[in-house]
Design a binder for these strands. Structure first.
Length: 197
DNA sequence: AACAACCTCAACCGCATCAGA
DNA sequence: GTCTGATGCGGTTGAGGTTGT
């Protein structure tokens, strides 16, 4: 994508950390024009940033209803289980955790959970010689179920991430412990299915 | 106090995919 | 069917903060 590269590597483009002023300008333009056409947003805001950079800033930091820090035990458990099922599909995992971004979850995984899981794996390997059943087939199934709604919907607005398997009437983005409880139950069912299969 | 090693997280990069011309 | 621009995703980097010596 030559355009993207040239656009983002222009010498005059701002790089590095965003200032409060830049955040403010970006938020203002998005409030008026919406979170789309990022190139235009960047221009209208008068920011020397590429559209990609603006999008990232909005999605990971400025978007309303973003939770920051303090990932609860419940959320951590959910991340672990979703990662077991989905692998490094951070955006999918983030879609199941209201208020969390894929970047945050990815970072959290890389700095906290990957070590934990590696340690666990080591322990389990040393304690038993039985190989873990690969999860790939299940992940592929998740993808095939997903891709109909996920990919197509992803071209819609930002709420598209909330769509998931089947029941589109359910609001997965709803905040609070209820949603997490529901997801935990879903995962229990899913793991039970894996045991059965 | 000074320095090194380590950790965290915001931001960047490159690629894949999609939609519209 | 092909090309081009826009968008989204996952991997990686690096600055700044924290901890250990």
């Amino acid at each position: 994508m030559a355009s993207t590269i040239s656009q983002c590597t222009k010498k005059e483009a701002n790089r590095g950390a965003w200032t409060a002023e830049e955040d403010h300008k970006l938020a203002q333009v998005i409030a008026v024009h919406g979170a789309k056409r990022w190139k235009c947003v960047a221009m209208k805001a008068g920011l020397k940033r590429c559209g990609k950079s603006c999008r990232l800033r909005w999605m990971n930091y400025l978007r309303p209803n973003i939770k920051r820090g303090n990932i609860s035990d419940q959320e951590q458990d959910l991340i672990l289980r979703l990662h077991k099922l989905l692998g490094n599909r951070w955006s999918l995992i983030a879609g199941r955790l209201p208020g969390r971004t894929d970047n945050e979850i990815k970072n959290y995984w890389n700095s906290h959970l990957s070590k934990k899981t590696k340690q666990k794996e080591k322990q389990s390997r040393s304690s038993t010689t039985v190989e873990c059943r690969p999860q790939k087939t299940k992940v592929m199934e998740m993808e095939s179920v997903d891709n109909g709604s996920e990919r197509v919907a992803s071209k819609g607005d930002e709420d598209s991430k909330t769509s998931f398997v089947g029941d589109e009437s359910f609001d997965y983005s709803s905040e609070g412990p209820l949603n997490l409880e529901w997801m935990s139950k879903f995962l229990e069912m899913d793991e039970a299915w894996l045991d059965f299969a």
